[in-house]
Design a protein around this nucleic acid. Structure first.
Length: 299
DNA sequence: ATGTCCCAGTCTCTGGGA
């Protein structure tokens, strides 16, 4: 079982890159964020042609979360926006987040489904902009709502996998420079406490549980050659409940997807393989590609 | 380096967000 999460920074602009990556990595499930599409514009046919069912929760110009699931895996139990009702339309006429009444809990940032016996959640946490700003306060409120949803609607003894752009670098090893992180967000103590509250509930940071090295990031600013200088942050995560976390045999960030033309997203996909305990762990990405190709061929 | 990319509307440029 291969699951990935990727902030695509506009699914419309990135369709070709996403198609390429689905072919490259052949995930069973790809969780996506920042699709920037209304549900009516979700490219269901394009994903169907690639062999995937697309479940989409969007609002238009901003945000938007989705899950692409291998076509032969039935999808059930769809929940959007923590079950709190419809999000607001950010399309024509909307003023965006500058609206004083804007609340990230009214935005398309959460989608849960069940597939392959796993509860899968695609999450796009608010950016927060500047520590102490109303947007930062909204970010922390959103994390409180996420934790409450876990408390009320989920169970750490079941198979649950939460993936997404959480816009938090959990530790200093997860950022090129904690002192220079933009606006001080993503690394502040309250944000890291909000992340830890998810671990306290019972979730495991699957990437960190399998990969100890510092300086491995999922996001790099487009500007100033930050990607090539590896000035980035590890802010996209796959958090698993213990029954799943114990079976994670491999975790990787695919930097290849952040390179080349057409212009990629500013995030790279994070991917994990879940298999029987004791399955040998391949050294790197190419080995994992070979493993998935062999399994695909063998049925 | 105020550095780049996305989007929609004001529409071949601008402004907001990341």
């Amino acid at each position: 079982m291969r699951v990935a999460t990727w902030n695509v920074n506009s699914l419309k602009a990135r369709q070709e890159k996403v198609d390429w990556w689905l072919e490259r990595a052949r995930p069973d499930v790809l969780l996506m964020q920042e699709t920037k599409l209304a549900d009516d514009d979700a490219p269901l046919l394009t994903f169907a042609m690639a062999g995937y069912t697309l479940v989409h929760h969007g609002e238009g110009r901003w945000n938007g979360v989705a899950a692409a699931v291998r076509q032969d895996l039935p999808v059930s139990d769809v929940v959007t926006n923590f079950g709190d009702g419809p999000v607001r339309d950010s399309g024509a006429g909307a003023t965006g987040l500058d609206d004083e009444d804007a609340d990230p809990l009214d935005e398309a940032r959460m989608l849960a489904i069940r597939a392959a016996g796993i509860r899968l959640v695609s999450l796009y946490a608010p950016n927060g902009r500047v520590v102490g700003s109303p947007f930062y306060a909204g970010k922390l409120r959103w994390f409180e709502r996420l934790r409450r949803w876990l408390d009320e609607a989920a169970d750490p003894d079941e198979a649950i996998l939460m993936g997404g752009d959480l816009n938090v670098a959990p530790a200093d090893d997860d950022v090129w420079s904690a002192a220079r992180a933009h606006g001080g967000t993503h690394v502040s103590a309250p944000e890291r406490a909000a992340f830890r509250a998810l671990l306290d509930w019972g979730l495991v940071d699957t990437y960190r549980s399998r990969r100890g090295e510092p300086g491995r990031f999922t996001w790099w600013d487009y500007r100033a050659g930050d990607f090539h200088a590896n000035r980035g942050m590890r802010i996209d995560h796959l958090l698993a409940s213990p029954p799943l976390a114990d079976r994670v045999i491999w975790a990787e960030i695919d930097r290849e997807a952040r390179k080349g033309k057409p212009i990629p997203s500013d995030h790279a996909p994070l991917v994990i393989d879940i298999d029987e305990p004791g399955t040998p762990i391949d050294a790197g990405w190419e080995g994992a590609l070979e493993r998935i190709a062999a399994r695909t061929k063998g049925g």
